[in-house]
Design a protein around this nucleic acid. Sequence first.
RNA 1: GGUCCGUUCGUCUAGCGGUCUAGGACACCACCCUCUCAAGGUGGAGACACGGGUUCAAACCCCGUACGGACUGCCA
Length: 498
Amino acid sequence: MVDKPVRTRFAPSPTGSIHIGGMRQALFSWLYARRHGGQFILRIEDTDQERFIEGSLNLIYEAFDWFDLDIDEGPRQGGEFGSYVQSERLELYQQWANWLLENGHAYKAFETPQELAQIREEREKMGKAGYDGRARNLTTDEIAQFEAEGRKPVLRFKMPREGKTRTSDMIRGITEFDNSQLNDPVILKSDGFPTYHLAHVIDDHFMEISHITRGVEWLPSLPLHWNIFEAFGWEKPIFAHLPLIMDDKGQKLSKRKTIEGGKSDVPVIVHDFIDAGYLPEAVTNFITNIGWNFGDNQEIFSREEAMKRFDLTDINKANAAYPIEKLESINQYYIQAMETSKLANLLKPVFEDAGYTVDIALMEQVVPIINTRLKKLKEAPNIAGFLFADWAKFEAPPAEWMIHKKSTAAESVTILQRVIELIESLEDFSPTAQYDAFKALAGEMGISNSVLFTPLRISVTGKRVHPPIFETLEILGKDEAIRRIKLAIDQLQKIVSN
RNA sequence: GGUCCGUUCGUCUAGCGGUCUAGGACACCACCCUCUCAAGGUGGAGACACGGGUUCAAACCCCGUACGGACUGCCA
């Protein structure tokens, strides 16, 4: 066990983009493999033909690319244990299912779905659950007769009826299950496809997986998998059942359910995060902090730092609510910490999508004045779009906006006239020089800074909320600034003359 | 219903018998800074589910209770 190379896997079903809980499992598995110099494998579990969604493989790879998680073996990178798509391994499953049948660990059953539903209903009245194993005793004649009728059998695994199954898990330790409580599950469906139970045991064995990481929802079926491994006589991998991320109702967060109650913008699948303008490093940091922590009270850390400390045994046992508010602040932190040119390049397409034409040099000027104001990239055009819009089309804002509550329209006009004169006279138009000059002007006029700045900033930006005014003025330049202020004066004049 | 898992501030968590008058982060509140909005700074409020044990000593160990969750499918 000590010498066995670490090989972990992520095994999603192709049902669309990856759910954030699944992505966290993938990340943890990846982290563990990388920490131990092992391999990380991607396997597609498409044994349920009904849930298959076209194009899922692309979405799954896009998700891994976005997070920059490299995959050692998988459908696209291949590997010596392929295929990595279960529907391409049918023969293998059938072969080993047969082996179980021949060795007395499995049996054929012919019940129809309706009959099964009835059995379940009857057993429920008796306080029991599931299939009762009645087909265990079918005679060869009975089997032959069912087959003559054209009924296609399923294969069910013969669970031990007595004693206990003692399982162990890296996170949860030893758990004992009473075998009398367990039923005989279908391992091979009538269409010849295996169920998850059989398929993953065979794959994890032949792909030489050392550690199976999956959600706790699998814990109840662990004894089943345990017994299948034993029936085959194969060495079991180490299991680690990860806690779940819950939704706002305390239920398992699922992509099959949508989050309701005005919170529909809560991202759940990886592509939601991409679309919303979160940064992959922030999302990585965010999900790594759910159920695991870096220690030393440090919450912001890179994936590489996490890798050095990560261990599956340190993962919490308890499920976690989805702390989505925290992502906003982590994302904000990463945006703020990012280099100007890098952020500018990320922001360019965001502005373009919003309909603006972007000059990258201008963007690099804008980035430093908006980077502390962004929680997500998508918010940027709202804040700074006006700088990229066609300046010639600028329209003065409503006059009321430009009048400070302790001031009047007439006074605002006077202020703006003085401001124009000042701007024209300024040789140094840098933000600090402007600030000094405007402050001096306010003093000279005997008014507070805010009384002076309110008409200035709103007349120039056309908005009530905007980036810092001096930097904005510098970007706009003297001429444009003056032009806008004159437009504003015209607006204000209308009120004054009334 | 049955089986299994879990339970520290609103939330994510630290804690692995004494260092706990329980630490950090997000959110919240107040103040400072301030040209709007942010950012930043300072401070505040806020938790060991409950009851029994064990022990000189329990958030940490044991047992019950309560609550929550998962599973109970020819889905994974």
